[in-house]
Write a protein that binds this DNA or RNA. Structure first.
Lengths: 308, 308
DNA sequence: CGAAATTGATGCGCATGGCGCATCAATAGC
DNA sequence: GCTATTGATGCGCCATGCGCATCAATTTCG
């Protein structure tokens, strides 16, 4: 059996029991009394049982109506709260934005943008999935978050990429290391060093390997770890040096670690916003994305596969 | 915020996600594709956030849509099952009838009528509130059951009464009692006996007292108990005799108790159907009541206060 | 890479359903 | 018994929701 009535019918029934009057219930629902009377009659016919016993001066629920009333109150209350929540989300008064972000970019972009966004929309929560680049792209592709902040990765025609900034790879070494006294180094300077790197399957490593292959530079990756932060930890112990994205290194002076630009050529990864090609952002997510884009103005997004 | 959409909108949204197609969802809901497209669009505008991401070949829920979907599935499933239940009740395919009945009448009227009703409507349950006469009338008046089987009690203008049968008061005594050998007795025969009776506030006692006052008969109520069955129990011990409604006495031969008609005059209580004056019965209750009435045809009900 | 098939969105006109007004019948209070 | 009020019904009107036709976009296939 298909549902063959409307929400207004159910609300009319509940309003009559609440107010004790067809007239008052009609007022409550912005209807005339005859319109409400017809709605009640139609609902009773649809359900095949009387719900109300009434005279011109009195109204009460039948036994069937008594059974139905608490159920309808609960269902309509739940529906109404969820609608209220949806509507508040739509008006940026309440809700949540879910985005994926590679951890190294999170610390750079998000604090300031989150501060701005929160000041403007104090009741909207930001939910950040801190995932690896590949996991983050997958999360966006599968619709688990509204967009992601990531870097150029595998070409996926379903995703678009809006660059925000270039993040150069730099050298990280212990203060006591001979190279630490330089203002910058070249790739050739690193040829004889024992280098600490991340997994060869990671996005960062893929970008780096491609760029260096083009420049005929070969490096000696002696240690391989899974997380950039582990690279930094090992550098701190002095057992080797590492090539890392700038954002993954300490932003301020560090007691034991020195970071130096690597020239000839400068190799960078591009950090940007990843979205589904036909995605539609909720108003809150759209606003958050706008603030992100403003923090670094760039041309409109295009498919990843067209970026060189 | 008021609910400003319809059940069909919600069902359209869920149907699209279930079928993966506006076309197929429209078919499912007996709409054309443009009509369904408009419903989705209107729902999204009402809620202030997109629910679906779609191209001409593909459709998926947004993050907001994903959050809403399980809630709506549950709410609409519950609504649909309760409507199915109501509809089955309306068509006498399923449901429940609740009536109040004084215990002494229950054994007489209900077994046969319940058998007939159950044969015709095997999936409708009969719920019997076995209450005293006064409690039964109150339950009917307050809408806790659809009607009651009771006797003439306090005049309540909100209730109507349809007589089913007259139930005479009879003498119950031990087989060894001197009166047991008679075929009948008169009230005068009881003047010098120690009588067991129920509470002077009970319906039965009120009827009896009124009738005997009119006939200038005075009885000696020596013992007073709360339940008619207790009267019978005491009669069985031989400590006294009792005046009881015929229906409250053993219907068959009893090893120790004899029941005799009491003449000059015959005093009876009237058992009948009690209803709210403006009551509306569910179809099942209406059918059950009709079977009851058929078991003893009587004139249409009239207000209790007009019965002499 | 272009053509073809298919699908969601939109313009348009029409029919119907839901509405409010007027009124009736019933109810409750004085 | 009269009066005021309320729920139910008849009636006419109009706004809404519909389907048809069509467009633009998407995906598949040769």
């Amino acid at each position: 059996m298909r549902i063959n009535f409307e929400l207004l019918d159910l609300r009319a029934f509940l309003a009559v029991l609440e107010t004790g009057s067809f007239h008052k219930a009609a007022e409550q629902l912005n209807l005339s009394q005859p319109a409400l009377s017809r709605r009640i009659k139609q609902l009773e016919e649809t359900l095949g049982a009387p719900l109300l016993e009434r005279t011109t001066r009195r109204v009460a629920a039948t036994v069937v109506g008594r059974e139905l009333q608490p159920l309808l109150v609960r269902l309509l209350d739940e529906l109404e709260s969820s609608v209220l929540s949806m509507s508040a989300t739509g008006k940026l008064q309440h809700g949540q934005v879910t985005i994926a972000c590679v951890p190294t970019a999170a610390f750079y972009f998000l604090p300031q943008v989150i501060r701005q966004f929160h000041a403007a929309h104090p009741n909207i929560r930001i939910r950040i999935l801190d995932l690896s680049a590949s996991e983050g792209l997958k999360s966006v592709a599968q619709g688990e978050c509204e967009f992601g902040i990531s870097m150029l990765g595998s070409a996926d025609p379903e995703l678009t990429f809006t660059p925000l900034m270039d993040d150069p790879f730099v050298l990280a070494c212990h203060r006591d290391h001979p190279l630490a006294a330089r203002k910058s180094v070249e790739w050739g300077d690193l040829s004889n060093e024992l280098l600490i790197g991340v997994s060869r399957h990671s996005g960062n490593r893929t970008i780096l390997d491609n760029a260096l292959a083009n420049a005929n530079v070969r490096l000696n990756w002696f240690y391989e770890v899974n997380h950039l932060s582990t690279s930094l930890g090992l550098v701190e112990t002095g057992i080797g040096i590492s090539v890392l994205p700038r954002l993954a290194t300490p932003q301020d002076d560090h007691p034991t670690i020195v970071t130096l630009p690597i020239l000839g050529p400068v190799v960078s990864r591009t950090i940007g916003i990843v979205e589904r090609r036909n995605g539609r952002l909720s108003p809150a997510a759209a606003r958050f994305r706008a603030l992100l884009a403003e923090s670094r103005s760039t041309p409109p997004g295009c498919p990843l596969s067209t970026l060189s």
